[in-house]
Amino acid sequence: MSMRTLTVRIKRYVPERDRSPRWEEFKVEADPHDRVLDVIQKVKWDQDETIGLRRSCAHGVCGSDAMRINGVNRLACKVLIKSLPSDVLTLEPILGLPVIKDLIVDMKPFFDHYKSVLPYLINDDPPPTTERLQSPEERARFDDTTRCILCACCTAACPPFWGDNKYVGPAAIVNAHRFIFDSRDRGAAERLDILNDTEGVWRCRTVFNCTNACPREIKVTQAIQEVKQALLTGEVDTHSVVNIHQET
């Protein structure tokens, strides 16, 4: 495949210079096998070194480079240039979080919500002489939600979160789900109590933007609905295998 000349439109916000974000345009020669992250780096290295972005692993694992790419939340390191429908590439910071500079947002509110659901193993039972054993079925019960990388693609795609940033948001619920449905954990009641708050799971309006945005293909809305059902029925089933991979 031949090189493509892209028009890269970046929503810039430099706090020392701008009162509100504004568009800036760059022309870049890009290989179809390049990723959007490579294109941004090219602009930064060759044309304007002041462009601000977060990146770390650059391979879809660390979750640093979530941004709006052509209007939807994606990881810049996972979108290939050949998948772009046109030669115009628009890049904007994710919504719902304060913009620090250009494509960098303040993730503190996001991580505060994450911490609020106690995202760690709670078990005060006396430790057994061996490991805390778990059957493969019990492990499979929450496998889907273990894959979250906390990139904020889901929470920043959620209209109820845009309107009310006190809502814990999809990512926090996904991480609560990971422990609520873990047979080794004893903190389900405590977490369900936190999520039963008006700013908990009931803010979810099943918009499905989170599920569509997740770069790890986690069934986010399904996880939220499972937590809602646990609250409605008062039962947490940590044993039934939810065969998520055969669903689609």
Partner: peptide
Amino acid sequence: MSVYRRGLVSRLVEGLRYGGGAGQ
């Protein structure tokens, strides 16, 4: 640190511009 926080109108406009699917 002066961060940029979106007002109500900006959030509405940006939200409508978001490329959500049938669900949105």
